[in-house]
């Protein structure tokens, strides 16, 4: 079964995505910031990573750069609700750095599931 890592500092969103993807049969792990996420990724392989952008310790942009290094086949989805800039600004950067899909918060459950399926199948 494909393995998915969720990197998100907001507990509600983390729980939502975990619940959503687990129901679809994926094996899901979570991390509360970029640093933890990269560490988890290095500890065991994942087929897909969903990461938030604005996070403490290490943000999503840095995390994507770290994750992408040496793993051209890794599928990446970046999600963001914006911060100092519009979500698109962050997501555009994430895309340039190698995110396969980007989703602007709030997104529907269907949207994220569709993106995951498309990337993993």
């Amino acid at each position: 079964m494909p393995r998915i890592l969720i990197i998100e500092d907001d507990e509600e969103i983390r729980d939502l995505l975990e619940s959503l993807l687990t129901r679809e049969g994926y094996t899901v792990a979570t991390a509360a910031n970029g640093k933890q996420g990269v560490a988890a990724f290095l500890a065991q392989p994942f087929d897909l990573v969903i990461t938030d952008i604005i996070m403490p310790e290490k943000d999503g942009i840095e995390a994507i750069m770290d994750l992408r290094r040496g793993r051209p086949d890794l599928k990446l989805i970046a999600i963001s609700g914006g911060g100092r800039a519009e979500p698109e600004n962050y997501l555009h950067s994430a895309q340039l750095l190698g995110a396969n899909r980007t989703l602007r918060k709030p997104f529907t459950n269907e949207a994220i599931l569709a993106a995951v399926k498309e990337l993993i199948s």
């Binding site: 969103i13 939502l16 609700g81 459950n109």
Partner: peptide, 21 residues
């Protein structure tokens, strides 16, 4: 505004996602 937008989008995300669930 950035902080509020960020927080608010997360809140909306949770509402949207969990109500769908």
């Amino acid at each position: 505004a950035g902080g509020i937008a960020h927080d608010f989008n997360n809140i909306l995300q949770a509402i949207l996602g969990f109500s769908a669930l």
